[in-house]
């Protein structure tokens, strides 16, 4: 990372130092945006930029959680299912939520309480993930794969397979997905808050630093007195709450919750986090990188949409770009290493 870290560096230099490892990615993002603005004239409009912000904030919120998980050397495949659970729970509890499946309409609560309950349900899913991984010592991949199936099943049972729609959607709830605060879409605002909090926690708190330590070398972390199990559990809970939050925002935005919501999101989220330089092996990664990763994929997606490229070419291009970007990253790193060793 950055070479000198004297105590009296100003805030501006600190930010610059933070961005330095991601210069290449950032340059790639800007290059992409410039190319897009030439190909599609309405790309660089305020409306489109806000749209990119809003669309990507949902997966963005989840990627911040995924960054924590990957830092510990784990992985969470259950986030798409958690996303659906939270969305369904919130939608069914909020006044106006209506489903053809009678049991979903039984209880109605004020919006805020409904959201809190949905987040608590997500937290429980995360806690179970954490306990299964730390206490039963099941590999995160398998444990969360099982949870993915399980939580999806819970959503089907809870909703009876029927979508929950709103007749009509209360303003207090619609605000989360469709509202604006000072001209900024609310989902984007929530994303920015999550990013700032996430960045602060990872960089400046004991908990955040311990995640790096756990992912870097678990034995060393244990010997230096870090409570590994507790910290890993917390990471999975945070991850689940954030995916629940994303699910609730999405439900508000499309005014509907469905049992199949968020399927495959885990893969997109992991791809963007890794694109942002976070290592799947753990111990290496930053929030800034993740944000850049999210926007690179988001800008590509948006640009291809504006150009009207068919879906299947879109997914081919997305896959190629992930390989190219990561390949370049790895390539430049190995050549640096060689220089040092020789």
């Amino acid at each position: 990372m950055s070479g000198d870290k004297s105590k009296n560096t100003s805030f501006g230099t600190k930010i610059l130092l933070g961005i330095r490892p991601h210069l290449m990615l950032l340059a790639a993002l800007f290059l992409l945006m410039i190319i897009m603005s030439f190909i599609a004239p309405n790309f660089l409009t305020k409306g489109n930029m806000l749209d990119i912000m809003r669309v990507n904030s949902i997966k963005g919120i989840m990627s911040i959680g995924m960054t924590l998980i990957l830092l510990t050397g784990g992985i969470d495949l259950s986030i798409g299912a958690t996303f659906a659970v939270a969305g369904a729970v919130a939608a069914s509890l909020i006044g106006g939520g209506y489903s053809d499946y009678a049991t979903s309409n039984l209880i109605k609560l004020p919006t805020l309480i409904a959201i809190i309950i949905a987040l608590m349900v997500s937290a429980m899913i995360g806690m179970v993930n954490g306990v299964v991984i730390t206490k039963l010592r099941v590999e995160p991949f398998i444990a969360t794969l099982a949870m993915m199936t399980f939580a999806r099943g819970i959503t089907y049972l809870y909703t009876g397979g029927y979508p929950i729609n709103f007749k009509p959607i209360p303003d207090s709830f619609a605000w989360f997905g469709k509202g604006y605060f000072l001209d900024i879409p609310v989902p984007a605002l929530i994303f920015i808050i999550v990013v700032l909090v996430g960045g602060f926690v990872l960089k400046y708190t004991c908990y955040g630093r311990s995640l790096y330590a756990i992912g870097g070398n678990r034995e060393t972390a244990k010997l230096s007195g870090i409570q590994i199990n507790k910290n890993i559990c917390r990471a999975y809970i945070v991850m689940a709450v954030l995916s629940g939050l994303a699910g609730i925002i999405m439900t508000s935005r499309v005014a509907s919750a469905s049992a199949v919501a968020g399927e495959g999101y885990e893969m997109d989220v992991i791809a963007s986090v890794v694109l942002g330089g976070t290592s799947l092996a753990g111990g290496k990664g930053t929030i800034i990188g993740t944000v850049i990763g999210i926007f690179i994929l988001g800008v590509i997606e948006n640009g291809l949409n504006i150009l009207g490229i068919p879906t299947y070419f879109k997914i081919i291009i997305k896959g190629l770009i992930i390989i190219l970007a990561l390949g370049y990253h790895a390539f430049s790193h190995t050549s640096k290493k060689r220089k040092v060793t020789v």
Binding site: L280, Y312, K318, I322, A330
Partner: peptide
């Protein structure tokens, strides 16, 4: 390219599915 298998094959999942279409 030294990309982690998880991500490399994830990208390939996308590419191959596109080719299917």
């Amino acid at each position: 390219l030294k990309i982690a298998p998880f991500v490399a094959t994830l990208a390939m999942m996308s590419i191959a599915r596109g080719l299917v279409y």
